[in-house]
Design a protein around this nucleic acid. Sequence first.
RNA 1: GCGGGCGUGGCGGAAUGGCAGACGCGCCGGACUUAGGAUCCGGUGGGUAAAACCGUGUGAGUUCGACUCUCACCGCCCGCACCA
Length: 827
Amino acid sequence: MQDRYDFKAIETKWQDRWAKEKLYEVPDFSDRPNYYCLEMFPYPSGKLHMGHVRNYSIGDVVARFKTMQGYNVLHPMGWDAFGLPAENAAIKHGDIHPADWTMNNIAAMREQLKQLGISYDWRREVATCHPGYYKWTQWLFLQLYHKGLAYKKKSAVNWCPSCATVLANEQVKEGVCERCKTEVEKRELEQWFFKITGYAERLLKDINLLAGWPDKVKIMQEHWIGRSEGAEIHFPVDGLDEEFVVFTTRPDTVFGVTYMVIAPEHPLVEKLIAGREQAEEVRAFVHRVRNLSELARTATNVEKEGLFTGACCINPLTGEKVPILVANYVLLEYGTGCVMGVPAHDQRDFEFARKYHLPVRVVIQPPGRELDPETMTEAYAGEGVMVNSGRFNGLPKEEGIRAVIAHLEEKGLGKGQVNYRLRDWLISRQRYWGAPIPIIYCDHCGTLPVPEENLPVLLPRNVAFKPTGQSPLAECPEFVHTTCPSCGGPARRETDTMDTFMCSSWYYYRYTSPRDEAAAWDRARVDRWLPVDQYIGGVEHAILHLLYSRFFTKVLYDLDLVSNVEPFTNLLTQGMVLKEGSKMSKSRGNVVSPEDIVAKYGADTARLFILFAAPPERDLEWSDQGVEGCYRFLHRVWRLVAPLGGELLHAPAVPSGKLVGINREMRRLTHQTIKKVSEDIGQRFNFNTAVSAIMELVNGLYQYRELPETDRDPAVMREAVEHLLILLAPFAPHITEELWAGTGHSDSIHRQPWPSYDPRAVAEDEITVVVQINGRVRERVLLPAGTGAAEMQAQVLAQPRVQQLVAGKQIVKIIPVPGKLVNIVVK
RNA sequence: GCGGGCGUGGCGGAAUGGCAGACGCGCCGGACUUAGGAUCCGGUGGGUAAAACCGUGUGAGUUCGACUCUCACCGCCCGCACCA
């Protein structure tokens, strides 16, 4: 073995050898228990960034640890390879095809991942843009289509003018495109949707099954689904054969309705105003509101505006006539797009009513005081009993809600209703670089699915990538023109492609059968591996990818294609990698490139630093000096172990006989480290403290090595060094493998079983007992381990310093905590 | 506005309700050395001659004992955004 730690030579040498020996290839069927460790696959943007390095380093520690613990670990990697940047690059540069751009990037990033020494089974690599993959994406679309879960409808959808495509609700944040931050517009378009709303209740309820997910993510999904219970109430429109249908969570306040409001875009508006003197004014108002961007319209500080339509409707419970207004704050997409106004008991309604001098009527009286509509300064939304509500007077709020719903149902005026904020998933994209939607339109036969035997619908290579707002495929006649699978006549293909989130909603199933040409996956393999035991990725997918994947899994379960109802048992959301307090970005100029770090310090150092610098969920501040520290540490390990060479194995593997003194202490440290590292990786996922513990073991070994040779036990040394290497192996796989081989071991360190600690070796002989007086540390006493409370108390009180400190004072109480401390309370 | 998270040395961060600051960075000192930005050893919250004492965002509370639990407040970060 060399004197110098030559990371470059060591890392390439072992990467080659591991590949040659197929060290990380995992059999689908094995006697060992299965464990599926998965990291979110990357978009092949060109090069890895530090976020990737962090994600995959965490995953690799888990995978290697579980493997050493005896599991058969599935640890695959692939590419979320369809998407806009490839196409944008083609538009910008003109001379590179999205497919080539993507494949080049994949090759570069695969090489980087290999240089990091991550233990992937590369035989299972998938790329979603490969026809062998997207054939099955299309096949899954057809399964949803046949189940009635994929449908086409015309509606107001989010349009990103910069990306020149529509977006799903989940891909719009605060009115701007989640990808490019451009303000989105609303457009009336006919688009394909997945009926995720049909799974709202199950997606919500099954959050309970996700005990291994962070609460933060579960709460975000819960809120996104946005379930609320209430009633649908039908108000007949006065003088018209129309119904004004509202959704309300407060049917108990229906006697307090003093006006009704409707969304400006609502189709009923035109019918309400037809032939009335208000018509033109209302149309102008509607036009003005509709022309506002989503962003301008939904901003918090937007003034609430309304306008009387001239129409009224009849409160079905009171028979009263109430005016209908159009208002800018009513959302067409939520509920029925119509709202009943109850100013006394809803703060927004209250403000609106005061502004437009609409009456306020109290129908819920709180306990202990009386609301006066004239003098109220805010709405009352709390508990109380119904008043001014005819037969319902005297009922408390909750009872009132139930009674009103029962009454409405009995009279056919409405019904109890559950409403969700979740919208159906818009999956059409007017772009080229995606999986074509496998649908054919025939003038005679209508909309038809592409027959399964004709899949995949291949993306044609030669198209013009002009961002026109229409899919580039529409301008490719040889793609568009086809024959009708039903009548054989001329027909047209759907030219939109699928949202790439569709591709990433099922890739974790494909890893189990990556090259299967007969099926999306083999059921036996999927049932064996799924659900994923540990999923690791960024929290930015808390809604998007993670919700879509849960939806997909439930659909697949219903189709009897999988046996699991949830895809990911445990989820770890890693924090961001920051530099100078903010996210690394080109515009800020604070990017640290993984390539440079690996070239300068090696993969082991890069991995070690990123795991050591912070616990995984927390944001990590990049520090060049911190990296240097880890580099130094690995050198320190090298200088400690390398000189031992083959000598190490001349000593027995386990010390025998009774150890005393420093040898006993050295062995204790070894076993305490095994315990700590095992718990930190296996239970707490605190890799930073695991690394700390290993550093302490190294520090201890340096001390131990200083001793005269006659005082040292070679077996203690061997046990400590071998365990040091094994514990460090998941973090720094190359250097540990080299030192393992260099000290005379023949099998790979990565095939070693994870060690267990000897509880007898861990136990301390003596305990430093802390003596507190009135809760303040005053003295320390060294006592044999296992000293009982009474004996401990006596020993402590006998200490001269303690006697001195309590002299002249009255001892009120003594609290002995065996193995820890004694607190003496004095007066 | 609603929901969630986080506030600990000069810095990254440790601490089942029981010695605050493990480990690392930085800094200071020593050894080795022609040399040291390598390496090894030691020190390092503030304060003091040494103690006392003061220290985990602020203020209360529970407790023999609180970084840890409870309540209120302040600051920063993230998510949602008129949800009827």
